[in-house]
Design a protein around this nucleic acid. Structure first.
Lengths: 223, 223
DNA sequence: GGAAAAATATGAGATATCTCCTATTTTTGA
DNA sequence: TCAAAAATAGGAGATATCTCATATTTTTCC
C-alpha cells in the first residue's frame, strides 16, 4: 500500500474532488491510499481505522467460515464506500476486503470524522442509498441462490462479465462468488460447451449462443 | 386492514409516540393501520403509497421467482421500517409483505413526507443503521446458505425460535425461509429425532440435546 | 532459471437436496 | 356443518452438488 504524500496527494485530491459527498469541507485529515492487486485493504476480523471511498479500481469482500469455506460476498466498485459498517456500529465482525485491480481510495480517519459524518445529511443520504442497494442486492442473491441451480446463476454471471463476447473470469474466484465447488463449476461450463452455448478457446470461453444464456439468466429476474 | 380514526387514532398515537424518530413533528398526515395475520401489507410488484413503521407485530418479506419458487427473505419486527426502498428509489421491484401476527403500523404518505424525511438527520441515521443491519444480515444468510447444509442452518433456526425448549414453527414457512423443499426439511427433522437431538410431540418438537444443536449452529458464526 | 505455489482439468463415487406421488389430519370458509 | 383447502407425513427415484484423488499447466518469486 502506498500513501500519497505532498504534491502527489494534493494533485490527486484536486483531480478527484470529494466535495460533492459532504456539506462540510472534509479534506483536512484525509489520506489517499493506493493498493495493488491482491493487497488487503481491510483484513478479516481487524477493525479498520478508516472509512474508505473508492475513487478508482475494484475490490472483493470475503468472509471465511469455520468449516474452511470462503465466500466472496460481493464486489466493490468505484464511488462506493468501504468500512461503513464499522463507522455505524461499535460491534461488528469485519470482513476482509481485497483489491482486485489497482485501487485508489480516499481514507477518512474514523477517529476524526465519525461525529461530523453522522450529522451530515448529504453524506447520510448517499450512504443510505448505497446501503439500500447493497441490502437489496444481497437479498436478491440470497433468494436466487436458494431458488435456482448454478446453471441459471452462471449464465447471468457470464453475460454480466463477458467482454466482447468472451468470458474469461478466474474459476477459483467464480466458485467463491457463486458458492459452488470448483469441480461443479467446470462441470456446468462443460455442459454449456456441449450444448453449444459456449466454445472453449484456450482458457477462456467464447459466447456462441447468447440467447440461450439470456433465457437461463432471465429466469432470475423479477419483472 | 383497519384504519384507526378519530379518538382511537389519537389515543394510539399518544401511547406510541413516534416523536423520537424525527426532528420535525410528523403527526399531521400519518395514518395508523392495523393488519390481521396473513393480510398483505404490501403486495408484490405494487408500489406502496406509504412508508410504514411497525409499532407492534411481526411480518414476512416474500418474493416469488419465475420458476414458481417462493422465498421468505426475512422477518420484520417491531420498530422496523417497511417500504423504505420505495422511499429511496424511483425504480424498485416491490416485494410482498405479509403480516405474521396482528400488526399495527404508522403509515406515512410518501407523497407528503418524502422530501422532508430525506432532509432529516435523525431519521436518516436511524434508517442508515437499520439498512446496514439488514445488508449485513442478508450477506450473512447468503454466504451461510452456500457454505453450510441445512443441518447447520436448521439447528440455528430451531434454537432461535424455540420457546421454552419447544420448537413449533410451521414447516411450510420454514422451508420458504431456509430455501429447501418441504420434503427435505422433514427429512432432516427426522434425522434430528433419530439422533436424539429432538423429540417429536404431536406436531411440535422438544429439544432434548441442546448442546449438539448448539454445536451445529455455532459452525455458522464467525468469531 | 528453477522450485514451489496456484490454477486448470477430469474421473469416480458420495451425499444433500429435489421432484413427484399418495395418504392423513387440520384448518378454513361458505 | 361440511366440503374444500392447507398442512403434515413419508416412500422412491432423480439430480445438483460435493469430496477426494490425481495430473498437467501456468504463475510466482527467490
Amino acid at each position: 500500500m502506498e500513501k500519497y504524500q505532498g504534491e502527489k496527494k494534493r494533485l490527486y485530491m484536486k483531480e478527484n474532488s470529494i466535495a460533492h459527498l459532504f456539506s462540510f469541507p472534509a479534506e483536512k485529515y484525509v489520506e489517499v491510499h493506493e493498493y495493488q492487486r491482491d493487497d488487503w485493504i481491510i483484513q478479516e476480523g481487524m477493525r479498520p481505522a478508516f472509512l474508505f471511498y473508492v475513487i478508482e479500481g475494484k475490490a472483493k469482500i470475503y468472509i471465511t467460515h469455520q468449516n474452511g469455506k470462503v465466500s466472496l460476498i460481493n464486489f466493490i466498485n468505484e464511488n462506493e464506500y468501504i468500512g461503513e459498517m464499522e463507522l455505524l456500529h461499535d460491534v461488528y465482525y469485519t470482513k476482509g476486503i481485497q483489491a482486485l485491480t489497482k485501487t485508489v481510495c480516499i481514507a477518512f480517519p474514523i477517529h476524526y470524522y465519525r461525529t461530523q459524518l453522522l450529522e451530515d445529511t448529504k453524506f447520510l443520504i448517499e450512504l443510505t442509498k448505497f446501503l439500500s442497494v447493497k441490502a437489496t442486492l444481497m437479498a436478491a442473491k440470497y433468494s436466487q441462490s436458494l431458488a435456482f441451480p448454478l446453471e441459471n446463476r452462471l449464465a447471468d454471471f457470464i453475460l454480466q462479465t463477458a467482454d466482447n463476447g468472451v468470458y474469461k473470469e478466474k474459476h477459483v474466484v467464480v466458485c467463491d462468488y457463486l458458492g459452488v465447488s470448483y469441480r461443479h463449476l467446470l462441470h456446468v461450463l462443460t455442459q454449456f460447451c456441449d450444448k453449444g452455448y459456449l466454445q472453449k478457446e484456450g482458457r477462456s470461453y467464447r459466447i456462441k449462443q447468447c440467447h440461450f444464456l439470456h433465457e437461463l439468466a432471465e429466469m432470475l429476474k423479477n419483472k
